[in-house]
């Protein structure tokens, strides 16, 4: 077991534990903070798996922008505790069943001995090489992605525009 592998397992454990904590917290701010930890772990995993640029982006976009956005919204709308509850307990079991089914399916797909497998070779995609690759072979997708962001921007602006009816409702 090399240092790489050791690090990988440690980070995976950290990520999984943080995520598990996140999805079960009742207080949403706690959930978000755990999730930030989870994303940090994922980012380190990315780095380990040879994607330094993506690791940086993961931290910046997921842990930075998206989670902060969540925090903003949570603080903005102040949901009462009562509303924040789990799904009726009776229906937990189908969820567990399905999650387990997925897990089983994925494990079955590998259908191999999980322990004695050859490890992957270590490699790293340098940011500049990755960038050149991206803009040469995926330029159209990049453009579409930028268009998507633009559409999202317009959509959010439209959605958050206060209409007169709302303004009256909100003016106590």
């Amino acid at each position: 077991m090399t240092v790489y592998s050791l690090l990988f397992y440690l980070l995976s454990l950290l990520t999984l534990a943080a995520t598990a904590m996140a999805v079960t917290r009742r207080h949403m701010v706690h959930a978000v903070l755990y999730l930030v930890l989870s994303f940090f772990g994922t980012a380190l995993l990315f780095y380990l798996l040879g994607a330094p640029l993506l690791a940086a982006l993961e931290v910046i976009i997921y842990a930075g922008a998206i989670m902060v956005l969540f925090l903003f919204i949570i603080m903005m709308i102040r949901v009462e505790k009562e509303d924040d509850r789990f799904f009726p307990f009776l229906q937990w079991w189908p969820a567990l069943l399905i999650s387990g089914g997925f897990l089983a399916g994925l494990l079955a797909l590998s259908r191999e001995d999980l322990v004695r497998q050859p490890g992957m070779t270590v490699a790293q995609a340098l940011p500049q090489v990755f960038g050149i690759h991206l803009f040469r072979d995926h330029w159209l997708a990049i453009e579409i992605a930028s268009l998507l962001l633009l559409i999202a921007l317009v959509g959010v602006l439209h959605l958050s525009r206060r209409r007169r009816a709302d303004a009256i409702e909100e003016a106590p």
Binding site: F87, Q91, P94, A95, I98, G101, F102, A104, G105, L106, A108, L109, R111
Partner: peptide, 21 residues
């Protein structure tokens, strides 16, 4: 919505299992 999502994922899970085995 959550019932619907559950059904959706259940169908996908069954499909995955079917395709795998």
């Amino acid at each position: 919505i959550q019932f619907r999502l559950m059904v959706l994922f259940a169908v996908v899970a069954v499909l995955v299992l079917y395709l795998a085995f």
